[in-house]
Structure formats: C-alpha cells, structure tokens
Amino acid sequence: MRRFEYHEPTSLKEASQLLTSLGEGAYFLAGGTDLFVEIRERLRQVRHLVNIKRVPGLDQIEWSDQTGLRFGAQVTAGQLEASGYLNGRYPNLRAALKALASIQVRNRATVVGNVCRASPSADTIPPLIADGAVIETYRPGGGRHIPLAEFFAGPGRTVLEPGEIVIAVTVPPPAQGSHRAYLKHGRRKAMELATVGVAVSLEVEDGLCTGARVALGAVGPVVLRAPQTEAILVGSRLDAAVLNAAAEQAMQECTPISNVRASAEYRREMVGVLTRRAVMLALEEAA
C-alpha cells in the first residue's frame, strides 16, 4: 500500500469542500474494494481519501410503489442483495449483484461505487441502465438527477463535476408484465470480471413485447444501450426468429476490443448468444 491521508467529513458540504480544496490526488472513498486495489497496483496516485461513511442519510434502502427503489451511496452490494426489495422486481440487478466478485467483497463494495468507477465491465451497470435508473447528486450549487444512460463519459470517466457527490440511485418500479434478466459471461463461475454482460428489461402483454431495453457490458468504452436491437424486440411476439434477429443486431451494435480476456470477435459473438439467452431467461423469470 502507498501512504495517504485519511479524512472523515460529517456532511455532504464538508465532503465536497474537502475534495475540492485538497485538489489533485484526492478521492472519495465509498466501499474501497476497487480503489485500494488501484492504489496497491499503482494505477492511481492517491494522496487523500475522503470517506463519506459518516455523512448521515446515505445508508437507506427504500421502496415505494410510485417511485420505485432508491438506495443511498453507502449501501453495499450485499445489503441491497439481501434487502428483499429486488425479489420479483429486479431479478436482473439481483443476478448482477450475485455475480459481483465474492460475498466478502460484496459486504464492502457499494453499488454506487461500482457504478461511479465507470468500468464498462461493471456488473451492476447493465441492469440499472436497462431498468432506467437515475443518479442523484449533491453539488454546492444544487444537486442533479442524471439518467444513468447519460452518466458515463468514457472508461473510468463520468459526467460528475469536481466536488459533486453521488448520493443515491433511483430505479423506477417495474411496469406491468415486466420481464428482466442479466447474464454474465466469464471463464469461471465466480470471481470473474465480465467478458460480456447483457441485461434485458422487457414488457410483455398477451405475448406481445410492448417495451424493451437492452444494455451491453464490456463491449464498448462504456456500457451501451442497444436501441436497434430493442426496436426489433418491441412489437414482436419474441419468437425464435425475432430472437435470432435481435441477437444479430446486438452483435452489430457493440464495439468490443481484444484483450487478454477475450478477442473482439469472440466478445461480439457472445453478445449475440447472451442477448438471445437473456431474453429467453427473462421470459422464464416470473415478473
């Protein structure tokens, strides 16, 4: 580990000011599960860590029929997974949480931290994008609500301004006839970074698909929506021919790269397989 100074502000205002005044090399600490790795592997030069755990009000998980699920910046993946709010409503997010690293890591990693790291392979992002999640922030001049699909500026980069803090994520309640799934591709069954992750969120009425959102992870600089794939699904009866066409289209819509985990070609092929399988799994999952 490299040395750094540690700070524990007790309000959002103080946290925001600290980060701005400490300048370069100052970072927010949420769960730390990624940040500490980056410090130890010298991927990030950190001089100051600003831990927001003493800031009150960020540890809530709430549910309302009108506004859906809302969880604060301190909520860990493990807490959200165990909260019971996901059952039957967000099976895709639940699957993503279950596939995130290990139980031990999930007890420390926050969902907001996983999102803010803006990794294209982060497990929680595809389902949250597919479900239309919105980011809530604090800024000295007034907070913002940012749709998650517009939150990322590139790998590791978000649209957050200096000193702006994510305080919560809201996920709208599932509509009638909602079907959702998340599938992750890795060589092992656990402790994997996704080679490809596909989340789908569908609305189906009387066998007819009335809404579809498809989010593709680890196959672009950021997690991608696949609008043309969605267009193929919407209005269809989701039969085998449609699924194959959607899979083909998703393969066109992604922009993967090659690295030690897989080649671009293989990733593209898996986007097709996983998109088809995710739709099938979503239809099986009880909404």
Binding site: Y6, E8, G32, T33, F36, G78, S102, Q104, N107, R108
Partner: peptide
C-alpha cells in the same frame, strides 16, 4: 484474509483499519 466484522465476512485487506 477473511475476518468477520460486525457479523459480516469481509476481506481484511480491502478495509482500512480506521474504518
């Protein structure tokens, strides 16, 4: 490095002592 902190298993290497 797994230890139990306040009832939950965590990686002690991924947590600061001050936390």
């Amino acid at each position: 490095c797994t230890v139990i902190v306040d009832g939950r298993p965590v990686n002690a290497c991924l947590m600061l002592a001050v936390e």
